[in-house]
């Protein structure tokens, strides 16, 4: 699955056979994970798949029931204090102190990390500025919006400049604009050399941010690879055609059948045809076939399957929660 032959110290995270049980539930059931230095690794899965539990074990927040893990070659079970110095954790629910202001929060975490008073104060200022929170510095956290809390939370994780950052569902519950800002922040971190391990239930988030993705379902890893590799596992592309004259749909279907040897799918819009392709290059054959019959089109797009479809194909069910799932189901039918 993973042909990483570089020495283990090149790995930021190396975990084997991670297990966590809660009563009868095997929340994490034998997961292997290797995260290389400097990459963004996405753990993708629906709610309750075991993503957060896995992250908490790696961050020394939960004891492991089985398996072993190393962070930059340091054993998590043996040396939790060292691991805590290497990892910054930003939780699913912003873990900042409600009783303090934003500025006081950052000051406190600085002091806890051994920064002297003056430096803790100036670090707090820097981070407030960097995360666009300087105007809200003296506000109490209870008055913060969800997005501001997340940003402050992330800022707090960066005080110690940890080389590895865990982001547990960094944008869950944020509006699209705030989500975009968060993505930018994460990209900045990576540009500065951080390694990021992030969990998400949003397929497009993993697609946007992660170099490599592991798909987790019910405590198991069901797939791993780059977003493109995962998509190509689903195997087909789709040619989406729109005819100029919907009345010619019948003729066009005949052409497609002849060229690809497969039944095209008519879309609800008049004149729309979706053609499943075993190979994206066959799109040209279809277009030439239409041209020869003088059937005119208004648009033609070749699309790779979305991660939603990947998820569907890998796990046999949708990504849960996601409102888009139903919408993509019909697409998936078209691909098949």
């Amino acid at each position: 699955m993973n042909q990483n032959s570089s020495p283990t110290t090149e790995l930021a995270v190396s975990a084997h056979g991670l297990v966590k049980t809660f009563g009868d539930l095997r929340a994490v059931d034998g997961v292997d994970l290797e995260v290389r230095r400097g990459e963004v690794f996405g753990v993708l899965g629906p709610n309750g798949a075991g993503k957060t539990t896995m992250l908490q074990m790696l961050a020394t927040l939960l004891p492991m029931d089985g398996g072993r893990a190393e962070i930059f070659g340091v054993d998590v079970k043996q040396h939790p204090h060292v691991v805590r110095q290497l990892v910054g954790v930003t939780g699913q629910y912003a873990s900042v102190d409600e009783n303090l202001t934003a500025r006081e929060n950052l000051y406190l975490f600085g002091r806890l990390l051994g920064v002297d008073k003056a430096a803790a104060r100036s670090t707090a200022e820097d981070l407030l500025g960097r995360f666009g929170l300087q105007d809200a510095g003296d506000k109490q956290i209870s008055q913060f919006s969800g997005g501001m809390r997340r940003r402050l939370d992330l800022a707090a994780s960066l005080i110690a400049q940890p080389p590895l950052i865990f982001l547990d569902e960094p944008t869950t519950g944020l509006d699209p604009r705030t989500r975009g800002q968060m993505w930018e922040t994460i990209r900045d971190l990576v540009a500065q050399g951080c390694t990021v391990l992030l969990t998400t239930q949003y397929l497009d988030e993993a697609d946007q941010l992660a170099d490599r993705i592991a798909v987790i379902d019910r405590g198991h890893k069901v797939a791993e690879g780059t977003s493109d590799q995962l998509k190509s596992q689903v195997g087909t592309s789709t040619l989406q055609l729109r005819l100029l004259d919907p009345a010619q749909t019948g003729q066009a279907v005949d052409v497609v059948r002849r060229v690809v040897g497969d039944e095209p799918v008519l879309t609800p819009e008049a004149g729309g045809i979706n053609v499943p392709l075993p190979d994206a290059n066959r799109a040209a054959d279809v277009l030439i076939g239409l041209r020869e019959q003088e059937l005119l089109i208004t648009s033609a797009t070749v699309q790779k399957p979305t991660l939603d479809e990947v998820f569907m194909a890998l796990t046999g069910h949708g990504a849960g929660e996601d409102d888009d799932t139903d919408h993509h189901d019909s697409d998936l039918e078209a691909v098949r």
């Binding site: 020394t60 204090h81 805590r84 910054g88 954790v89 939780g91 102190d97 806890l112 990390l113 110690a160």
Partner: peptide
């Protein structure tokens, strides 16, 4: 509260 999750994740003495 959530902030204790952060305290736990920080490299600080457990007694603090």
């Amino acid at each position: 509260k959530g902030v204790f999750d952060r305290f736990k994740s920080l490299p600080i003495a457990r007694i603090a």
